[in-house]
Simulated scan of single mutants.
Amino acid sequence: MDQQRTAVVTGADSGIGRATAVRLAEMGMDVGITWNSDQEGAEETAGEVRALGRRAEIEHMDLSLLPEAAAAIDALGDRLGRLDALVNNAGTGTSTPFLDLHHEAVRTVIDIDLIGPFLCSQRAARRMIAQGDGGRIVNVTSVHEHQPRVGAAPYCAAKGGLGLLTQVMALELAEHGINVNAVAPGEIATPMTGNEGADVTEHRRPGVPLGRPGDAREVAAVVAFLVGPDGSYVTGASWPVDGGMLRMGPQAGSHLESDSWRRP
Protein backbone atom coordinates (compact mmCIF):
# COMPACT_ATOMS: atom_id res chain seq x y z
CA MET A 1 0.00 0.00 0.00
CA ASP A 2 1.36 3.43 -0.92
CA GLN A 3 2.24 5.78 1.92
CA GLN A 4 0.11 8.90 2.36
CA ARG A 5 2.21 11.81 1.07
CA THR A 6 2.78 14.75 3.38
CA ALA A 7 4.18 18.27 3.12
CA VAL A 8 5.25 21.03 5.49
CA VAL A 9 4.67 24.62 4.39
CA THR A 10 6.33 27.29 6.53
CA GLY A 11 4.60 30.61 7.06
CA ALA A 12 1.29 29.11 5.94
CA ASP A 13 -0.96 31.30 8.09
CA SER A 14 -1.73 33.59 5.11
CA GLY A 15 -0.78 34.60 1.58
CA ILE A 16 1.35 32.32 -0.57
CA GLY A 17 1.82 29.86 2.28
CA ARG A 18 -1.90 29.40 2.83
CA ALA A 19 -2.61 29.10 -0.89
CA THR A 20 0.15 26.50 -1.18
CA ALA A 21 -1.08 24.45 1.76
CA VAL A 22 -4.58 24.35 0.27
CA ARG A 23 -3.32 23.50 -3.20
CA LEU A 24 -1.22 20.60 -1.87
CA ALA A 25 -4.24 19.34 0.06
CA GLU A 26 -6.21 19.44 -3.19
CA MET A 27 -3.48 17.17 -4.58
CA GLY A 28 -4.21 14.72 -1.77
CA MET A 29 -1.37 15.59 0.61
CA ASP A 30 -1.57 15.94 4.38
CA VAL A 31 -0.06 19.27 5.40
CA GLY A 32 1.97 20.64 8.29
CA ILE A 33 1.63 24.39 8.80
CA THR A 34 4.00 26.72 10.63
CA TRP A 35 3.12 30.18 11.88
CA ASN A 36 4.97 32.94 13.70
CA SER A 37 2.60 35.72 14.83
CA ASP A 38 -0.83 34.65 13.53
CA GLN A 39 -2.04 31.45 15.17
CA GLU A 40 -5.63 32.23 14.18
CA GLY A 41 -4.55 32.47 10.54
CA ALA A 42 -2.80 29.11 10.82
CA GLU A 43 -5.96 27.55 12.26
CA GLU A 44 -7.95 28.97 9.35
CA THR A 45 -5.49 27.43 6.89
CA ALA A 46 -5.74 24.11 8.72
CA GLY A 47 -9.50 24.32 8.51
CA GLU A 48 -9.34 24.74 4.73
CA VAL A 49 -7.02 21.73 4.47
CA ARG A 50 -9.29 19.58 6.63
CA ALA A 51 -12.34 20.65 4.62
CA LEU A 52 -10.65 18.94 1.66
CA GLY A 53 -10.48 15.68 3.61
CA ARG A 54 -6.78 15.90 4.46
CA ARG A 55 -4.95 16.01 7.78
CA ALA A 56 -3.50 19.31 9.00
CA GLU A 57 -1.11 19.94 11.87
CA ILE A 58 0.13 23.34 13.03
CA GLU A 59 3.33 24.32 14.85
CA HIS A 60 4.73 27.65 15.99
CA MET A 61 8.07 28.60 14.40
CA ASP A 62 9.95 31.88 14.80
CA LEU A 63 12.92 31.81 12.44
CA SER A 64 14.55 34.74 14.23
CA LEU A 65 15.28 32.23 17.03
CA LEU A 66 17.84 29.93 15.45
CA PRO A 67 18.82 27.17 15.44
CA GLU A 68 16.07 25.99 17.81
CA ALA A 69 13.18 27.15 15.59
CA ALA A 70 13.97 24.59 12.88
CA ALA A 71 12.91 21.83 15.28
CA ALA A 72 9.35 22.60 14.16
CA ILE A 73 10.07 20.61 10.98
CA ASP A 74 10.77 17.44 12.95
CA ALA A 75 7.81 18.06 15.24
CA LEU A 76 5.45 18.22 12.27
CA GLY A 77 7.14 15.30 10.55
CA ASP A 78 6.64 13.20 13.66
CA ARG A 79 2.96 14.08 13.94
CA LEU A 80 2.30 13.56 10.23
CA GLY A 81 4.19 10.26 10.24
CA ARG A 82 6.58 11.14 7.40
CA LEU A 83 7.73 14.08 5.28
CA ASP A 84 7.70 14.07 1.48
CA ALA A 85 7.91 17.78 0.70
CA LEU A 86 9.09 20.97 2.37
CA VAL A 87 8.08 24.41 1.11
CA ASN A 88 10.25 27.12 2.68
CA ASN A 89 7.86 30.04 2.39
CA ALA A 90 8.26 31.98 5.66
CA GLY A 91 10.07 35.27 5.12
CA THR A 92 10.45 38.92 5.97
CA GLY A 93 11.99 42.06 4.47
CA THR A 94 13.00 45.66 4.98
CA SER A 95 12.51 48.98 3.27
CA THR A 96 15.55 50.81 4.56
CA PRO A 97 18.33 52.64 2.67
CA PHE A 98 21.65 50.79 2.72
CA LEU A 99 23.44 53.48 4.75
CA ASP A 100 20.71 53.50 7.41
CA LEU A 101 20.70 49.75 8.06
CA HIS A 102 21.71 48.43 11.48
CA HIS A 103 23.39 45.12 12.12
CA GLU A 104 20.47 43.68 14.08
CA ALA A 105 17.96 44.34 11.28
CA VAL A 106 20.28 42.83 8.67
CA ARG A 107 20.94 39.77 10.82
CA THR A 108 17.21 39.23 11.40
CA VAL A 109 16.39 39.27 7.68
CA ILE A 110 19.31 36.98 6.83
CA ASP A 111 18.31 34.55 9.59
CA ILE A 112 14.66 34.37 8.56
CA ASP A 113 15.12 34.42 4.78
CA LEU A 114 18.32 32.37 4.38
CA ILE A 115 19.66 30.60 7.46
CA GLY A 116 16.20 29.47 8.53
CA PRO A 117 15.43 27.73 5.21
CA PHE A 118 18.95 26.23 5.29
CA LEU A 119 18.36 24.63 8.70
CA CYS A 120 14.78 23.58 7.92
CA SER A 121 15.94 21.96 4.70
CA GLN A 122 18.67 20.02 6.50
CA ARG A 123 16.13 18.55 8.89
CA ALA A 124 13.67 17.76 6.09
CA ALA A 125 16.33 16.20 3.86
CA ARG A 126 17.62 13.96 6.65
CA ARG A 127 14.09 12.66 7.20
CA MET A 128 13.57 12.09 3.47
CA ILE A 129 16.87 10.19 3.21
CA ALA A 130 15.93 8.02 6.18
CA GLN A 131 12.58 7.23 4.55
CA GLY A 132 14.48 6.07 1.48
CA ASP A 133 12.07 7.18 -1.25
CA GLY A 134 13.18 10.71 -2.11
CA GLY A 135 11.33 13.97 -1.68
CA ARG A 136 10.91 17.56 -2.80
CA ILE A 137 12.10 20.88 -1.39
CA VAL A 138 10.85 24.18 -2.78
CA ASN A 139 12.36 27.47 -1.63
CA VAL A 140 10.15 30.51 -2.13
CA THR A 141 12.59 33.27 -3.06
CA SER A 142 11.55 36.39 -4.99
CA VAL A 143 12.23 38.17 -8.25
CA HIS A 144 14.83 39.84 -6.04
CA GLU A 145 16.72 36.58 -6.06
CA HIS A 146 17.60 37.72 -9.58
CA GLN A 147 17.37 41.53 -9.63
CA PRO A 148 18.05 44.17 -6.95
CA ARG A 149 15.60 46.56 -5.34
CA VAL A 150 16.49 49.88 -3.74
CA GLY A 151 15.95 49.80 0.01
CA ALA A 152 16.04 46.01 0.24
CA ALA A 153 19.73 45.19 0.65
CA PRO A 154 19.43 42.38 3.25
CA TYR A 155 16.34 40.94 1.56
CA CYS A 156 18.05 40.82 -1.83
CA ALA A 157 21.21 39.36 -0.30
CA ALA A 158 19.21 36.66 1.49
CA LYS A 159 17.03 35.76 -1.48
CA GLY A 160 20.02 35.73 -3.83
CA GLY A 161 21.82 33.47 -1.38
CA LEU A 162 18.79 31.20 -1.09
CA GLY A 163 18.69 30.90 -4.87
CA LEU A 164 22.28 29.70 -5.05
CA LEU A 165 21.78 27.49 -1.98
CA THR A 166 18.91 25.88 -3.92
CA GLN A 167 21.33 24.95 -6.70
CA VAL A 168 23.89 23.45 -4.31
CA MET A 169 21.19 21.48 -2.52
CA ALA A 170 19.88 20.18 -5.85
CA LEU A 171 23.32 18.84 -6.77
CA GLU A 172 24.09 17.28 -3.40
CA LEU A 173 20.66 15.78 -2.71
CA ALA A 174 19.99 14.40 -6.20
CA GLU A 175 21.61 11.05 -5.38
CA HIS A 176 18.98 10.63 -2.65
CA GLY A 177 16.10 11.28 -5.04
CA ILE A 178 15.39 14.72 -3.56
CA ASN A 179 14.52 17.44 -6.07
CA VAL A 180 15.18 21.03 -4.98
CA ASN A 181 13.85 24.10 -6.79
CA ALA A 182 13.08 27.75 -6.14
CA VAL A 183 9.94 29.72 -6.98
CA ALA A 184 10.54 33.45 -7.41
CA PRO A 185 7.35 35.52 -7.08
CA GLY A 186 6.95 39.08 -8.23
CA GLU A 187 4.33 41.35 -6.70
CA ILE A 188 1.65 39.02 -5.31
CA ALA A 189 -1.55 40.09 -3.53
CA THR A 190 -0.59 39.08 0.02
CA PRO A 191 -0.35 40.74 3.46
CA MET A 192 3.35 41.42 2.76
CA THR A 193 2.41 43.66 -0.18
CA GLY A 194 -0.63 45.15 1.57
CA ASN A 195 -3.32 43.82 -0.76
CA GLU A 196 -4.25 40.30 0.35
CA GLY A 197 -7.52 39.06 -1.08
CA ALA A 198 -7.65 41.77 -3.73
CA ASP A 199 -9.10 41.08 -7.15
CA VAL A 200 -5.81 41.28 -9.01
CA THR A 201 -7.55 42.10 -12.28
CA GLU A 202 -8.67 45.42 -10.78
CA HIS A 203 -5.14 46.67 -10.02
CA ARG A 204 -3.19 48.11 -12.93
CA ARG A 205 0.56 47.56 -12.95
CA PRO A 206 1.91 49.23 -16.11
CA GLY A 207 5.44 48.12 -15.22
CA VAL A 208 4.44 44.43 -15.35
CA PRO A 209 3.95 43.02 -18.88
CA LEU A 210 0.78 41.16 -17.85
CA GLY A 211 -0.46 44.43 -16.37
CA ARG A 212 -1.47 43.29 -12.87
CA PRO A 213 -0.13 41.81 -9.63
CA GLY A 214 -0.27 38.06 -9.15
CA ASP A 215 -2.66 35.98 -7.10
CA ALA A 216 -1.16 33.75 -4.38
CA ARG A 217 -2.89 30.77 -5.98
CA GLU A 218 -0.86 31.33 -9.14
CA VAL A 219 2.34 30.88 -7.14
CA ALA A 220 0.87 27.86 -5.36
CA ALA A 221 0.14 26.22 -8.70
CA VAL A 222 3.83 26.33 -9.66
CA VAL A 223 4.87 25.00 -6.25
CA ALA A 224 2.35 22.17 -6.67
CA PHE A 225 3.83 21.28 -10.07
CA LEU A 226 7.31 21.07 -8.54
CA VAL A 227 6.08 18.97 -5.61
CA GLY A 228 3.89 16.71 -7.74
CA PRO A 229 4.66 13.85 -10.13
CA ASP A 230 4.91 16.08 -13.19
CA GLY A 231 7.97 17.83 -11.69
CA SER A 232 9.96 14.63 -11.29
CA TYR A 233 12.74 15.61 -13.74
CA VAL A 234 13.09 19.22 -12.61
CA THR A 235 15.75 20.20 -10.10
CA GLY A 236 18.09 23.11 -9.41
CA ALA A 237 15.94 25.68 -11.24
CA SER A 238 14.38 28.98 -10.23
CA TRP A 239 10.85 29.55 -11.53
CA PRO A 240 9.81 33.23 -11.74
CA VAL A 241 6.08 33.82 -11.21
CA ASP A 242 6.09 37.52 -11.93
CA GLY A 243 3.86 38.39 -14.88
CA GLY A 244 6.98 38.86 -17.01
CA MET A 245 8.51 41.56 -14.81
CA LEU A 246 12.03 40.15 -14.90
CA ARG A 247 11.97 40.25 -18.70
CA MET A 248 11.80 44.03 -18.42
CA GLY A 249 15.48 44.15 -17.44
CA PRO A 250 16.50 47.62 -16.23
CA GLN A 251 12.95 48.90 -16.90
CA ALA A 252 11.40 46.39 -14.48
CA GLY A 253 9.24 47.53 -11.65
CA SER A 254 5.68 47.39 -10.42
CA HIS A 255 6.09 51.08 -9.55
CA LEU A 256 5.93 52.26 -13.18
CA GLU A 257 2.86 54.41 -13.81
CA SER A 258 2.74 54.44 -17.60
CA ASP A 259 2.45 51.97 -20.49
CA SER A 260 4.79 54.09 -22.61
CA TRP A 261 7.49 51.37 -22.50
CA ARG A 262 5.24 49.15 -24.64
CA ARG A 263 5.97 51.31 -27.70
CA PRO A 264 9.40 51.96 -29.27
Rank of each mutant, 00 (worst) to 15 (best):
V180F: 05
A189M: 08
L171T: 04
P229K: 06
E187A: 08
D242P: 12
D230G: 14
V219G: 00
G194Q: 08
P250N: 04
E257G: 12
S238K: 04
E187M: 14
L210N: 11
A170M: 02
A184G: 02
G231S: 15
G177S: 08
A237V: 14
M192G: 04
D259E: 12
L256C: 01
P206V: 06
A152Y: 13
P229G: 03
Q147A: 15
V222K: 07
S254W: 10
G249D: 12
G161L: 06
E175D: 12
G151D: 11
G194W: 05
A152H: 12
H255A: 15
L173I: 03
A252F: 10
P148S: 06
D230F: 09
A157P: 09
A170C: 11
R205Q: 14
A153W: 00
L226G: 05
P213K: 12
A224R: 01
G207D: 14
L162K: 01
G231L: 09
A237S: 14
R247C: 13
P240C: 05
T190F: 10
V208S: 04
A252D: 03
P240E: 07
L164N: 01
W261R: 12
G207C: 11
F225G: 03
G244K: 13
S254F: 09
V168Y: 12
P250Q: 10
A198N: 05
V200N: 04
M169G: 06
L246A: 00
S260R: 14
E202Y: 01
P240M: 14
A189Q: 14
K159M: 06
T190N: 07
R149I: 13
G160K: 02
L246E: 04
L171Y: 02
I178V: 10
T201F: 05
G231I: 14
A158H: 03
A153V: 12
L226T: 04
W261K: 10
T201K: 07
G243L: 04
